[in-house]
Computed example of a mutant assay.
Amino acid sequence: MGDTETFWEETMKYIASTFAVLSMSATMAIAQDFELPKQLSWTAYGTGSAGYNQSVAIGAALQDATGTNLRVLPGKNDVSRTEPLRQGRVQFSATGVGGSFMAQEGVFDFGAENWGPQPIRVLMANNGGAINLAVGVAGDLGIETYADLKGKRVAYIVGAPALNVNTEAYLAYGGLTWDDVERVDFGGFGASWTGLIEGQVDAAFASTNSGKTYEAEAGPRGLFWPPIDPADTEGFKRLTDIAPFFQLNKARVGATIDGTDGHQGAGYAYPVLTAMEATEADLVYNMTKAMVELFPKYDGNSPGIGGWALDKQNMEWVVPYHEGAIRYYTEAGVWTDAAQAHNDNLVARQAALAAAWEATKAANPDDWVAAWTEARRKALADGGFQITF
């Protein structure tokens, strides 16, 4: 009897262990079952930026797991990253708040007559919190606070409203405006940091883990990130009045920050993976699925890339999610009724802005900027939406 019991116990253990292995294999097979084209393209920030480096790391994971080749096209500013997306020459864009929030809002360069509010949709965003997005200053100036930038040379990126608004917000934190500094124009993000390294400018905006910031740290001038004091609520309000998407954050990753106790500053989601509303839902679904389920393969392969993890996603951000991404998140059990209600409100906001844009175009005003600014703010007010910019 004892031998029989032992036989059945061992048999059941074998069946259970075999079932576990088969279940694991099935799960792994499903995880690799991405219906993606063999060739994908998306735009990103310029070479050397965190957005570009992370995109390359994600592309390598896609290639290894699925055979899909991801072409990452660097764009030097928000317009050059968004134009290929709008034209359908790329399927996605790993962008920032400029190519997402500001494109949606139809402001700054996106307020020009050949642009207007765009039906941008989000798949995922890097919300890691490991990095800050901040204005860095040359380390040879003796600057300690953002107020010390008065009279200094500050980079302005032509065609990159997100970067410039963010810089303006940091100046505001220090009680300054563009009138208090010497504005130096550059044609792209990378050029602005080359300018800092080579002494053409004293301060520029970047993510703390950008390749260019590491170059600056190792360069002859060095690099310093002035801190944001959490107790300075008035200063931080001045910052968020200009750039409402910022939040206080203590960075652990970045030039001059790695290996330290961290840097108290501020940040926001970056990069943000976007598509147009018209992008095929099945493609977006599979791209979102690949981003989530291949995360272990690309995590750790670029500084700050851990923020793409599923548990770090903010489903109630300032730009709506694509229906294909929502389908995946619903299947994954992380999409809520609150997220759907928030998303519906954002879609309605975009519709109100689009209608105001078409009405303004039909009126053919002499002063386009003034007319669109007034029409945009009125549309948001009439719809009960928050007025930003």
Rank of each mutant, 00 (worst) to 15 (best):
E10G: 01
A94V: 03
W317Y: 03
I120S: 11
Y329P: 03
G188E: 09
I305Y: 10
A371C: 02
G48N: 08
K361Y: 08
Q104C: 03
L149D: 01
K237A: 14
F101I: 01
D148F: 06
G384D: 05
F224T: 06
P161V: 00
S41N: 12
E280R: 15
A381V: 12
V79G: 03
P244K: 09
G75R: 06
L294W: 09
T213F: 09
Y321F: 07
E105D: 12
L149V: 08
G99Y: 06
A112I: 07
W42N: 06
V79W: 11
G51S: 07
K237G: 01
N164Q: 13
G259K: 13
N345E: 12
T177L: 10
I197L: 05
F101S: 04
T145D: 03
T256C: 04
A134P: 00
T336I: 10
Y45I: 00
G106I: 02
G174Q: 11
P365V: 05
A362F: 12
S55P: 13
E234D: 11
Q39H: 14
V319W: 06
T388K: 04
Y214I: 00
E277C: 09
G307S: 11
V284M: 11
K289H: 01
H322A: 02
L310F: 09
G2Q: 14
W42V: 00
L273M: 09
G116K: 10
I326G: 01
M287T: 03
W193T: 00
N345P: 02
F246K: 13
M291G: 08
N301S: 07
A50I: 07
V347Y: 09
V284L: 13
N69L: 06
K237M: 08
L248E: 07
A251D: 09
W308C: 08
R81W: 01
P226F: 14
M287K: 10
T27S: 15
A255L: 00
V21D: 11
W115T: 00
A275L: 03
Y170G: 00
S210D: 13
F101C: 03
H263A: 13
G59D: 05
E10S: 06
E280H: 15
I157L: 11
N164W: 07
G188M: 12
Q350V: 00
P84W: 13
L380I: 02
L223T: 01
V184Q: 06
G265W: 08
M102T: 01
T68H: 03
I157P: 00
N364V: 05
E217V: 04
A266E: 01
G304A: 10
N301D: 04
A44S: 15
A94I: 03
A339M: 13
P227T: 11
Q200M: 04
I228K: 03
Y146G: 00
A325G: 05
G139D: 01
G300E: 09
R121G: 05
Q54A: 13
D311C: 04
L62K: 06
G195M: 07
D282V: 00
I30L: 12
G51V: 03
F236A: 08
W317G: 01
T11G: 04
E182N: 12
A155C: 10
T373H: 12
W225Y: 15
A231M: 06
A172H: 04
G262V: 12
A309E: 12
